[in-house]
Design a protein around this nucleic acid. Structure first.
Length: 274
DNA sequence: GTCCATGTTCTTTA
DNA sequence: CTAAAGAACATGGA
């Protein structure tokens, strides 16, 4: 569910109420989603204050006043919701942080049916270790070319590698490649610099547009207040296999690349980048 | 029953 | 050695 635009939207809905808030008790219903090193589970029951809420790639990170960082990754089906204390809990609510802030008593809840997402409590130095590529929403042509030039994988697969570029997932990688007119099977290191420049621009434009629409809700995604996004209505290829391309009317195709589905228009997206 | 799913990480293969 | 492909994780919807 959550790629950069969805995670950014969640962060924007949580930030005003969580910044400066104090974390009281923490209840963990399913320890499997807590992926910090052993022994840190009880330290999640910290009585600390949140000083900043930010996004890095698809990660949500809350800086605590003692320097530690609470990191949440939503995986495929994860949700982070801020609800009034005592409100009924959704199924698969695994961790609840009890929050005191200017808005009264709230509960921050991590919900994840598939439990692919997770929660980490990290030391300052651990959280600062930067293993992700540049933010996809800001990526420049030169940075993207430098990253893509070092792999021969299909461009679609390379765009999903968070260590090359951070924030793209299956939806926005497909949408950006369509917008840039690039066949998703093209080896990443074979794109011309003009094509890479066009791709960088398409990535920035699509992601910023998606953020303005509150992200895409295909199945599960909702923001911190439970509201779905609307960008799915503007998808041009993702989930549209067998339907006509919105630009040229050719039939959208679905193939499998790197174990993930890839959707593209065989007419708009030809090798060489037409 | 089958297939598929917005992601990451570990293992296996080339 | 490295890069790439594949499996695994767990649940639910079509």
């Amino acid at each position: 569910m959550p790629e950069l635009p969805e995670v950014e939207t969640v962060v924007r809905t949580l930030r005003p109420r969580l910044c400066g808030a104090r974390i009281g008790a923490v209840s963990v219903a399913h320890g499997g989603v807590v992926r910090s090193s052993p022994g840190s589970l009880d330290r999640l029951l910290s009585d600390s204050r949140i000083v900043r809420v930010r996004r890095r790639g698809k990660r949500i990170e809350m800086d605590l006043d003692d320097g530690r960082v609470l990191r949440v990754h939503l995986g495929m089906t994860g949700r982070l919701r801020l609800e009034p204390a005592g409100a009924p809990a959704a199924a698969h609510t695994h961790v609840v942080w009890h929050i005191d802030c200017g808005h009264g008593r709230l509960e921050l809840r991590f919900i994840d049916p598939r439990r692919i997402g997770g929660v980490w409590l990290l030391a300052t130095e651990t959280a600062a270790r930067d293993d992700l590529g540049p933010e996809a929403c800001d990526i420049g042509a030169a940075a993207l070319a430098q990253r893509l030039g070092r792999t021969r994988r299909a461009i679609k697969t390379a765009l999903l590698d968070q260590s090359l570029i951070a924030g793209l997932g299956n939806i926005y990688a497909d949408e950006a490649l369509h917008a840039a007119g690039i066949d998703p099977r093209t080896p990443a290191d074979r794109l011309s610099s003009a094509t890479v420049a066009r791709l960088a621009k398409a990535i920035r434009r699509i992601l910023r547009l998606a953020i303005r629409h509150g992200g895409s809700t295909v199945r599960d995604y909702v923001d911190g207040d439970g509201r779905p996004g609307s960008f799915q209505k503007l998808h041009r290829v993702y989930g549209r296999a067998g339907r006509p391309c919105r630009r040229c009317r050719a039939t959208i195709r679905r193939i499998v690349l790197g174990g993930r589905s890839a959707h593209y228009c065989p007419a708009c997206q030809r090798r060489r980048g037409g």
